[in-house]
Design a protein around this nucleic acid. Sequence first.
DNA 1: CTCGAAACCGGAACCGGTTCCATTGCCAGT
DNA 2: ACTGGCAATGGAACCGGTTCCGGTTTCGAG
Lengths: 342, 342
Amino acid sequence: MPRLDDVARAAGVSKATASRALSGADGVSPATRAKVQRVADELGFRASGAARRLATGLTRTIGVLTPSVDRWYFGSVLHGIAHAADSHEHDVLLYDLGAFGHGGHEKFERFMRRGEVDGLVTITWSLVGGDLTRLAELSIPVATVGEPTPHTRSFCLDDDAAGRQATEHLVRLGHTDLLHLASQTEVQPFDASSSDRRKRAFEAVSAEHGLRMRPVRTVPTTLEGAHAVALHFLDRPDRPTGIVAGTDEVALGVMLAAHQLGIRVPEELSVVGVDDVPSAAPFGLTTIRQDPAQHGEDVVAWIMGAMRSRGRRGGDASQPDRSHTGYAPELVVRASTAPPRP
Amino acid sequence: MPRLDDVARAAGVSKATASRALSGADGVSPATRAKVQRVADELGFRASGAARRLATGLTRTIGVLTPSVDRWYFGSVLHGIAHAADSHEHDVLLYDLGAFGHGGHEKFERFMRRGEVDGLVTITWSLVGGDLTRLAELSIPVATVGEPTPHTRSFCLDDDAAGRQATEHLVRLGHTDLLHLASQTEVQPFDASSSDRRKRAFEAVSAEHGLRMRPVRTVPTTLEGAHAVALHFLDRPDRPTGIVAGTDEVALGVMLAAHQLGIRVPEELSVVGVDDVPSAAPFGLTTIRQDPAQHGEDVVAWIMGAMRSRGRRGGDASQPDRSHTGYAPELVVRASTAPPRP
DNA sequence: CTCGAAACCGGAACCGGTTCCATTGCCAGT
DNA sequence: ACTGGCAATGGAACCGGTTCCGGTTTCGAG
């Protein structure tokens, strides 16, 4: 494996000049630069990342903290992040904190201990209170996607609008007896998780239109979990005529349960979800669409910008950007919603 | 941020001793070691990963090449990998090659160019032929999970047994007219992808029992894709009485299509899948279970072992381990299979 | 009491880049 | 012709650890 020294010698220049030539810094004549680059190519030179990081202090890596990677939303965000990071010539260091609470804290501690990233994005807050504030210890840009947060720059669906749109869609169809299924948030450091905001939007719309007030139910975020609970609360005469689910997975679980109980969707029960997962379409699920991969791309774009501004000292004094981006939801009407039976 | 030098000075020892004390190397008296460790703690010392890598040549990082991260199988494997890597104090560098063929090669090139990992696991071969052999250029342990390969150590479900078990289950129930839906493999460098092996097992069992020979159909690996095709080929009088799907997602798509066409499962159509995804249970899908997260854990365990043996020079001369681990499939019988109607 | 091995430790080289600073060469301005 | 100034370049320090090598102790065996 050739070193920079070898390239320099072969090109007849000093290590310093070779470094400048290859890194694109100026102060090198075009002729010299071309020669060095050619020689480097011929020798198959690849700069040692370790040496570069040691010298520059930059890792060209961004870290991702995620509660888990095998759920549609998280996976899609991660996909967007990976794509964007790659196009910025950055690597992605993945920290799968695992099942919530399940040793997640220890993994977080190890992450902090290594801390070899230039920027960090957390997908949802899967951290407990104490850990949250510790993130400030790393003096690197931090952003969150999936939940609005007061501590960091954040990106996610406008949950309030999403909850409203879903509920109002059913109200417009004539429903007056709705039930909201909030998906369970395992860790909930703030009083305004995504799930909460959707729930409040539901309650607000319910109140505005004088709907029957049923207490919101909290169910597991998975299809199978929601299905199991739905089998119980759907199997009674005073069930609602429509259900606003916090998530497509939940909505699909409900549709399945309804089907198994002989309740026809949408004739006897309307169901709306949020997400627009790929299987929502074939199941005919009416839902609120969001594009997590795009969120991932955007968060990386922001991180890159933030890294640049820290780069040039002076932007340092300015307040860190803790603003929030809420994406506009888009209602997708399919076959799972209809006017209630008279 | 304190440096090793600071710790050494504060502890009244040399940098060399401090390094030995903290890294656990021997040649340090217990008393000295304790003192250095205490001082390091007090100062909040964290060794610079960059410096350590430069000095040792080890990155404490393993790379993961995956075709995408938002599909159940890949996500679960990645989850297992992340967990295992963490317990070995290693980081995970993620390379999401993105949609197959879609710039995947460029991303792969960038990966090779940086190449700062101690070990590499590829989830399925999403690489084209040329790229495959280039992996040997990196002289690090490489393993694959999700497909048996001739070039590397590999881990995956015993596809032959899985295909046989699924098919034989239907045969035992009395079916004689089956259709196999192989899931599409976008890149297929070898003549024996997972999908192929399951297909051949199906054909073998079919022949052994003299079943009606229908040509195998290849369908997209997604629920929505399989659903779309199933709507066509199920909607005809001479449809089979049973379907062996290469994947649960495909099986679920078929079940959905059948339902929409008014075909009752399992009375009029039996369906078997492979995977046992979480939603297979609520849907009552009979399937062949596998545990991808376990595969991820195992592949990391192997990588760690391989790294150690390369560490001690001498094991170097020995042939690299290219063996294959096939996990035994487990049939899970649920409600989607039954004897054919007479 | 002496001698040698073994344990412990410090100095310094090294990993492979980046970057500050000094030097050189060349050209325009007066 | 002289010089201020700028572009191009080289030397060397530096980033922060690890590790080789040689020098002291220490301690048990003879």
